[in-house]
Every structure is written in structure tokens, then in C-alpha cells.
């Protein structure tokens, strides 16, 4: 059996390609979405949004990241006209969503979180219906292109109820694209879909961005935000905690931990291992090393070598990625 040595060029790794794509992102300076001091308090007193301000530029992919109930869907609902804001203002390409709602909404496409479709309609009819709602003349060629792009053309005469969950999700995207929107909201677009479909959707979204469409997506998959977005906004308890360039944010958040179960308990960490900033458990049996997954070197090889030289032996090791919950805790903690 032969072993092939792989030489990885740093500029051709997926992460490097992604970062290069971000640098050449077609986003321009035109603000497509402007949210100012937006708040929402529901009738039962629940404060879903608290003084949120945000700007998203044309051609940008912006991911709104947050746990369930953080306020992501409320934010999208207000922009799209489904929920009434308590205070604040929203403009889409300069059009106020209340005073000039027709102009604002005609620019927006919305893919909701739930698989809400009219089960008894044909795929092609319900897609054409969405276009008509936006006041546009029928355009069979465009509808065909949208359905082909989303691999639904073969199913155009099927009733919606006959589609699989993944197909329904794609149909919702097709409906949102039927009127050629300039701003596309994707609310948890890949929730509950398989990996292959998820990657297909990412490709679709990138293709839209290439055409100048501004994409705002919500997700609680950090991987998705990392893969797709130019910028990420983190929302928690209705507050926009931070908005940052994706590459920078991932560098800050994307850490992993290597846990070593020691053969013999340690009283203290040897001096020669100080540079690794290791954590030692109270009972002295576990060493934890936290490292940056986006760094050029993780330092694991050097650490293992230095452990050996220091005479520290271990019986087991495992790695663990920082969970989204931990990331949120770190972001909302006073120390952060």
C-alpha cells in the first residue's frame, strides 16, 4: 500500500478560497438595508428586539447568527412586513418599509423558516403565483430558469404535497426568486436539510450574490455562517451583540480544545509548557489545550513533542470544537 503525500497550497484550501472570494466580493457601497433603532415588544410584554441598528450593502451576504428565540425571525418579519415594529425605522434601498412599502417590498424576496406551501398547487403554478403577487407580468422563461436552477423543473407539474422536504425548501426559494428580488432573506434556509442539499443551496446563494443580490440569512449553524457570509451579526435576547467581518470573527471564535487524560496526576504544569497556556483540572488528571483552528499552525505536534520531553505521559486524548452555546456565552459574558 502506498501513501500519497499531499502538498497543500495555502491559497487553494477551501478556507483560503472562501477568504479570497470575500475579498473580491461584489458588495459595493450602496446600502440596501438600513435598520435604525429597531425595537419590538409583543403584546405579552416580551421584548424580541432591543434598539437594533444595522446596515447591509448591496451584493453582500450577511448572516444573522443567534440561538432560538434570539430575535432573528422577528427582525426579518419586520423588514418583510409580517410584523409591526414597536419603534425604529427600516429602509430597503432607501425606501421606508411603512411609508413606501410597495417600493420596499417589491425589492425583497423571503424564504421563511417553516415549510409553508400550498399543498394542492402545482410547482409551476405556485411559483408563477408568487411572481404575479409582486405585480410582474408572467415570464415563463424566468420561471423555467429558476426551477431549473433549483433542480425542480422535472417536478414542475407535481403537486406540492408530492415533494420531499428538501424539494419543498427549494420550492420556497424558487417562489422567493420568482419576482427577481434584489434583497433575499433566507430564514434558517438549511434547517433540517441533508448535507448535499445544504451545499447546493450555498452554491445557489453565491450565484445570486454574483448577480448583485444582497442576501441576509439567519442560521444557528456557525459552519453555515462561516461558509457563506461576508459579515456576521450575532444576536442574543433581541440585542445585536456584534457585527464583524466573517474572517475576523471566526478567528476570534473558531477555537478547538484538545483534552489529554494523563497517566499520572500533575501537581502543576511544567515550566517548559508555559507557552501553550494549558489548563490543568483540579484533580491533576486532565490537561486542556485550546488552539485556533484558523491559524497556520495549531501547535499540537509541538505540544505533544514537548509533553514527551517533559515526561508527561497520557492515556487518552480527544478534541472538541467550541460549541455555539459556548461562543454565545463568551460573547455575552462581561469579560468579553
Amino acid at each position: 500500500m502506498t501513501r500519497t503525500q499531499l502538498t497543500v497550497n495555502p491559497t487553494t484550501t477551501p478556507a483560503a478560497q472562501r477568504d479570497a472570494a470575500r475579498e473580491t466580493s461584489p458588495a459595493d457601497d450602496r446600502v440596501m438595508l438600513s435598520i435604525e433603532h429597531l425595537s419590538k415588544v409583543y403584546a405579552d410584554g416580551f421584548k424580541a428586539l432591543d434598539d437594533v441598528s444595522l446596515e447591509v450593502r448591496r451584493g453582500e451576504i450577511f448572516a444573522l447568527l443567534g440561538p432560538n428565540g434570539a430575535g432573528k425571525t422577528t427582525l426579518i418579519g419586520i423588514v418583510c412586513g409580517l410584523i409591526t415594529a414597536s419603534s425604529g425605522s427600516v429602509r430597503v434601498d432607501g425606501h421606508d418599509i411603512v411609508r413606501n412599502y410597495r417600493a420596499a417590498r417589491s425589492l425583497i424576496g423571503l424564504v421563511p423558516q417553516e415549510l409553508t406551501t400550498d399543498a394542492f398547487e402545482k410547482v409551476i403554478d405556485t411559483t408563477a403565483f408568487s411572481r404575479g403577487l409582486f405585480g410582474l407580468a408572467p415570464n415563463p422563461a424566468h420561471i423555467e430558469k429558476v426551477l431549473r436552477d433549483l433542480s425542480l423543473w422535472d417536478k414542475r407539474n407535481s403537486r406540492v404535497r408530492e415533494l420531499s422536504g428538501g424539494m419543498k425548501r427549494r420550492l420556497l426559494i424558487a417562489k422567493a426568486l420568482a419576482h427577481e428580488p434584489e434583497v433575499l432573506f433566507l430564514d434558517e434556509p438549511t434547517a433540517g436539510v441533508d448535507v448535499e442539499l445544504r451545499r447546493d443551496m450555498w452554491l445557489q446563494v453565491r450565484a445570486l450574490r454574483e448577480r448583485g443580490v444582497t442576501v441576509i440569512l439567519t442560521t444557528h449553524y456557525i459552519e453555515e455562517a462561516e461558509e457563506m457570509a461576508d459579515r456576521i451579526g450575532v444576536i442574543n435576547h433581541g440585542e445585536l451583540i456584534l457585527v464583524q467581518n466573517t474572517t475576523e470573527l471566526m478567528r476570534r471564535l473558531g477555537s478547538k480544545q484538545l483534552t489529554l487524560q494523563l497517566n499520572e496526576p500533575l501537581q502543576q504544569i511544567p515550566e517548559m509548557l508555559a507557552e501553550y497556556e494549558l489548563e490543568l483540572s483540579e484533580d491533576g488528571h486532565t490537561l486542556i489545550y485550546t488552539y485556533d483552528t484558523h491559524g497556520e499552525r495549531t501547535g499540537i505536534t509541538a505540544l505533544l513533542s514537548d509533553l514527551s520531553r517533559a515526561g508527561v505521559r497520557f492515556t487518552d486524548l480527544r478534541t472538541r470544537e467550541t460549541s455555539l452555546e459556548e461562543i454565545f456565552v463568551s460573547l455575552v459574558s462581561p469579560q468579553s
Binding site: G81, L82, Y101, R102, R105, L110, T116, T117, K175
Partner: peptide, 10 residues
């Protein structure tokens, strides 16, 4: 749930 489409249309 398809009411979202009507309410978000111009």
C-alpha cells in the same frame, strides 16, 4: 402559513 406571502408582497 402561506399568508406570509400575501403580507410580504407589495
Amino acid at each position: 402559513g402561506t399568508i406570509y406571502e400575501l403580507l410580504s408582497a407589495p
